[in-house]
Design a protein around this nucleic acid. Structure first.
Lengths: 241, 241
DNA sequence: CGAAATTTTGAGTTCACTCAAGGATGGTGG
DNA sequence: CCACCATCCTTGAGTGAACTCAAAATTTCG
């Protein structure tokens, strides 16, 4: 029951001992298959943590005015509800975009792993720190960029994160999101998302093929438009501990 | 060299032993006084962590288009650059709004504290989890709320957080931010911030007195307008560990 | 007290929104 | 395998919330 993506991510933060790697790979209790558009976690008090193995999911909040805001996309190797391990509850929901395969890790196993290998607490903590950095980037994206720049930035981020876990070699990836979803992620209306990606396409920056495949045709120009700097996503090796 | 606010915050998450409390209170190496508008941390590689003791600060990012986005306000008890403890670097800057008093905690002391009391790692981790929750809320705020609701929400959040650390008994607090700052926090222009708080004032929801004191005149209606639900800020007691 | 920063107000503009309808696409069951 | 239905995408037209530019009034601070 491989936890390859997670290991890959954590190994970017710190060097893991054989024993630590072993412990992590034995975390999952079972695998869960989730259908497209299905909720993975709602705002409750889960007793296990779900880890994305394949597929793409999103964190979201429903506002009272009927709107939805997606606050993050989750790619393989990402925890859905690590928050609840420490905080007890979830303050938001997570839903699968396309079909997802999840590993389920009971809280007690994670606590046991941390007890045996205290350094792992720092590794998992770093996951939350990256989450926070991504959120900050989204605040800036939604708050201070035009629709055009915003969409460009979002696509850059998703591609970069997929690439970091070894998915997407070339500059293309499958994104099982509707234009409505992209609107909820960027704070734009569905119609304006349509016009915006239309312009990105006209300008030769992206291409959308059948099966919801996104191609970034001109990474150079796209990052320029989006002002995309992956520094906030990059994880330097942990020194102390 | 008291770390009262921090202790108060951490004790909301978990019960601390006398020894743990002692360790935390001995963390600060020195106190630092920072003038209004001065940077507390920039995007570099600090070797100590700064902790707000008094005053209000903000995290911010400068965008290439000349805009600034504030991604969070920091109140007493909050860490400025805990990220760098684990990640090595900062991906954003922190600046004082009004005059601030900071406690400086060298990284090695924090690592030592965690080594002696592994549960403290979970406590500090929870700080990052709350940060992430606040950021998510900001994404939703900026992405899916009108200027009017947005400003209301921001004021609710700041007041609630000040209240949780024992500042502000009544519904008023000092906020040493210009309307430009509030714009950078909400993703609005300075002019529109002016008109928006003008409307909040007209509607009898808030009052701005001399010395930058904000008064929330009608908490009931304000939370309704803002759809403010402090659940995401509340920290349930830690069960495991 | 004067200079600098901030707030306030006015006027015109624009980016993104809503409403609406037609076309494309994809999944499902007969 | 095709017809049908639902979902999603696309385009048009009109509207509106928030923006920019600009200048006056006020406050803050040295």
């Amino acid at each position: 029951m491989p936890t390859t993506m997670l290991l890959r991510k954590l190994e970017q933060v710190m060097v893991l001992s054989e024993s630590e790697r072993q412990t992590i790979s034995e975390l999952p209790e079972r695998v869960l298959h989730v259908k497209p558009r299905e909720d993975i976690v709602d705002t409750s008090r889960p007793t296990s943590v779900r880890l994305i193995r394949t597929g793409i999911a999103c964190r979201y909040t429903l506002l009272g005015n009927g709107h939805r805001q997606i606050t993050a996309f989750l790619v393989p190797g990402d925890f859905c509800d690590l928050r609840a391990l420490i905080m007890g509850d979830m303050d938001h929901a997570v839903s699968a975009l396309g079909p997802c395969e999840l590993a389920v890790v009971p809280h007690h196993r994670l606590f046991a792993a941390i007890k045996d290998h205290p350094r792992l607490a720092l590794a998992f903590w770093s996951d939350t720190l990256v989450d926070a950095a991504i959120h900050r980037d989204w605040v800036a994206n939604v708050g201070r960029r035009s629709a055009y720049e915003r969409m460009a930035h979002l696509l850059c981020e998703i591609w970069f994160r997929l690439k970091s876990v070894g998915l997407s070699m070339d500059h293309s990836f499958e994104l099982p999101a509707t234009q409505g979803d992209l609107g909820d992620a960027t704070g734009l209306s569905q119609v304006h998302v349509n016009r915006t990606i239309g312009k990105l396409r006209e300008d030769g920056l992206i291409r959308l093929s059948k099966g919801r495949v996104v191609q970034l045709l001109d990474w150079e120009r796209l990052t320029e438009v989006a002002e995309f700097d992956p520094a906030y996503l990059r994880v330097p090796k942990l020194n102390g501990g």
